[in-house]
Every structure is written in C-alpha cells, then in structure tokens.
C-alpha cells in the first residue's frame, strides 16, 4: 500500500485523499479481522455457557500469573507503539526508533511467554491430541483446550506478523528509507494493526483465564 514514495498514485488527486484512503482501508481490514476472531470468541462463549463446570476445571489449569504478565507486556507494547506513531508524526527520528525497538522487544517477550506457556501446558498433557495423557476427567475440558490452542495460536501468528512489520520499520528507519514525517502513514498503519492485535488479547485474556475461574 504505502511502500512506494510519498508521491501520490495516479488514481488519487491529492496526498490527503490517499492518506484517508489508506487509513479507511486499514480500518476496514481490521473490521474484517475482528469478525475472524469474533467467530472464535463466539465458540468459546457457547462452550462456557453449556459446560460451565468443565470450563472452570480447564481454566484452573492455566497459569494465571503468566497470563497476567503477558497481558501487561502487550498493553505496554500498545503504548510504546502509540508513542512511536506520535514521534513519527512529529518527525523525531530517534524517539520513533527507540519506541519501535521497544515495541519489538515487548512483542517478542510476549511471544516468549506464550511459547513457554505452551511447552508447560504440553508437558502437563493439556494439549489433548498428543503428549502426556490429558489430566482432567471432563471430556468438555478438552473442548476448552482445543479452542485455547487455536485462539492463542491464531493470535500469536497475528502478533508475529506485527513483529515482522515493526522490525521492518526499524530496518527502514536505520537504513534511512523511512523519511519522517512524510512516511508517517506507514508507521501509523502498522501501529493500528499492532494495537488491534493487542485488543484481541485484551479479550482473550479474560475469556481464557478469568471468566470461568
């Protein structure tokens, strides 16, 4: 979308029109993504409702402290990303770079926590199709973990894409190809995506770790 020069594409008349189009395009894309995750949340909601006891037992198996720390890490990355966008808009190159690097580090930290969680859970037999025997007697607890692995996995993939995008910005910034504030829209777009992925986690955390506890 915006990997070309800030020059206006032929289908646009003025730069502001192109900027508005980019912004709207990204929001529409996020709307679509929201529905994608919405279907997962809907499935979780249904099973929370029909199998409260099994969901409670399953939730208790998750490591709440790791979940909370991960959430705090992601919330912080949202703020660093917002700071990066702000600095980019004002053309402060160094501040942008620092905030972007901070965001990548926080994103990686979250992924590390998540991968650690997964290994931990696999070791406890909580990945139902493989590994040690599933520890809970309730069959429906497996449903919870099936959805848990799909939803956290889908989120982690989205976050990984976000990390690659932000890392790309860092490289462009260091190599001087990201002229600021002219190319601020690029930072802003990546920022919107990043924060959307955070919002998904803001809902995944209570849905998986809290509501049935």
């Amino acid at each position: 979308m915006s990997d070309a020069l800030p020059a206006v594409h032929e289908q646009y008349q003025v730069a502001t029109q192109q900027l508005a189009a980019d912004r709207l395009g990204l929001w529409v894309f996020l709307a679509s993504e929201a529905m994608l995750f919405g279907a997962v949340f809907f499935s979780l909601a249904v099973y929370h409702y029909i199998h409260p006891a099994a969901m409670h037992a399953a939730t208790d198996q998750l490591d709440l402290s790791m979940g909370a720390v991960g959430t705090a890490v992601l919330l912080s990355s949202s703020t660093t990303m917002a700071l990066a966008v702000k600095a980019a808009g004002e053309g402060r190159r160094w501040e942008t770079l620092v905030a972007l690097i901070g965001t990548v580090v926080l994103g990686l930290a979250f992924e590390a926590i998540k991968v650690h969680d997964w290994f931990d859970e696999f070791g406890k037999g909580l990945y139902p199709p493989a590994g040690p025997p599933f520890p809970l007697p309730q069959p429906a607890a497996r449903l919870f973990f099936h959805l848990y692995f799909v939803s956290t996995g889908l989120h982690a993939v989205h976050l990984a894409v976000g990390i690659l995008l932000v890392a790309g910005l860092v490289i462009m910034q260091v190599s001087g190809r990201l002229t600021l504030p002219e190319r601020m829209v690029t930072v802003e777009m990546v920022g919107l995506y990043w924060q959307f992925v955070d919002i998904v986690w803001i809902f995944l955390y209570p849905t998986l770790y809290l509501v049935s506890r």
Binding site: Y47, P129, A130, R142, L143
Partner: peptide
C-alpha cells in the same frame, strides 16, 4: 485432531 464440534466431548454440531 482438535475437536470443536465433536459430540463425544460435549461439542455441539449445531454450533
């Protein structure tokens, strides 16, 4: 092998 709609696990095919 992750069952979401498997009735044996209490999954609901209507979902």
């Amino acid at each position: 092998g992750l069952g979401f709609f498997d009735p044996k696990l209490g999954g609901d095919p209507v979902l």
